[in-house]
Write a protein that binds this DNA or RNA. Structure first.
Length: 356
DNA sequence: AAGCCGGGGTG
DNA sequence: CACCCAGGCTT
């Protein structure tokens, strides 16, 4: 195994990537000519969480209005924000303005050329600082933007979501190991171009990839599952009770769900929220009496937009013949004897479990 | 570690 | 509609 878990030596990786870049990379982006620190900086900040095609027109207008860091520092913030309007993440514009003033006041208008000094400027984190060093100053420094993350995660088959500290650390390790000293400008552009045009999030064009032979994700056929996507945000939980009213002879009382809402039109158990007295509900709705209630262990069912946690609330009764049921809305179902009606899945599972 | 910022593109 | 994008800052 090559360094840092890469399936190929970093030198080979960089060489293959650079050869590909010469033929297929993007060489005509507005901020590449000339790639001054100021122009690279503006582009990098605009490109944070924003796609190239969206950025280009904003970039042209911004540079035309604020051609230098001095011009930007001297401009009123409102003017800067006006040129940012529509790009989103407006803190970027405020930070840009603030950083321009710091560069003029503390660095005499010269952009710093160390990671530490760059990261001290508002709106410049580790990746943006690395990009400025590499692309504007030609100094070897790794970047780790969304493109590089995707390429590296697939190349070395890095497990887990890049939002966690451990995966982040691992990816920075890989980025550090892969970044070459020679042609670091081109390499930095190359890994982003590869991620943007070949190693795309969905349907990557692996057949066109210069790293094809050395990619673990491809070798394992796991391009689709790497890098792991952000875990779905925890779904809101709704808790309720489902009344499991049973009679030895009649069976279980089922009730049809209203036509809209969850399980619309399906058969389920009567629902009784935690703020409702089940005994009163049964009296009011069925003119029935329940001798005793007994809770069962809660069960969980997941919908696309929320999680339902329901507690089966078993009620024993004496004389089901006295209950008044609306024919099309309520029925006694004898588990195992009659054909089951269209049941909500978790209810079917619950009743299925009762037979055993 | 998690939340937040945001308009736009994509399956 | 859900998810993601050339991330960084705050809590």
């Amino acid at each position: 195994m090559a360094a840092a878990g890469l399936p190929l030596p970093p030198g080979k990786m960089a060489a293959a990537l650079l050869a590909w870049f010469d033929r297929h990379g993007r060489h005509d982006l507005p901020w590449q000519h000339p790639a001054t620190p100021y122009r690279v900086w503006i582009s990098e900040v605009m490109l944070q969480q924003t796609q190239v095609a969206t950025v280009i027109p904003y970039y042209e207008a911004f540079i035309a209005r604020f051609p230098s860091v001095e011009a930007l520092a001297a401009a009123p913030l409102d003017e800067v924000l006006r040129h940012w309007a529509g790009l989103g993440y407006y803190a970027r514009a405020r930070n840009l303005h603030q950083a321009a003033r710091q560069v003029v006041e503390r660095h005499g208008g010269r952009f710093p050329d160390t990671l530490e000094a760059l990261e001290a400027l508002p709106g410049i984190g580790r990746s943006t600082a690395g990009a400025i060093l590499a692309q504007a100053h030609g100094i070897r420094a790794p970047i780790l933007d969304g493109n590089a993350k995707r390429v590296l995660a697939r190349l070395a088959a890095v497990e887990g979501w890049s939002g966690t500290a451990a995966v982040q650390r691992r990816l920075w390790e890989l980025a550090e190991a892969c970044t070459p000293a020679a042609r670091v400008r081109d390499y930095t552009q190359a890994i982003m171009d590869l991620g943007a045009t070949v190693c795309t999030r969905s349907r990557p064009a692996c057949a066109d990839c210069p790293l094809g032979d050395g990619c673990r994700a491809r070798a394992e056929g796991r391009q689709g599952e790497l890098p792991a996507s952000r875990p779905r945000r925890e779904l809101p939980v709704r808790r309720t009770r489902l009344l499991l009213i049973t009679d030895p002879e009649a069976g279980v009382l089922l009730e049809r769900r209203p036509p809209t809402g969850i399980w619309g039109g399906l058969w389920s158990l009567p629902e009784c929220g935690w703020d409702t007295d089940p005994t009163e509900l049964v009296r009011a709705r069925y003119h029935g009496e329940v001798r005793s209630w007994r809770p069962w262990p809660a069960r969980v069912h997941t919908f696309t937009h929320f999680r339902l946690e329901f507690t089966p609330w078993q009620g024993a009764i004496n004389r089901p013949s006295h209950w008044v049921l609306e024919p099309d809305r309520t029925l006694w179902y004898n588990v195992g004897l009659s054909e089951p009606p269209g049941l909500a899945a978790p209810v079917r599972a619950l009743l299925e479990g009762m037979r055993n």
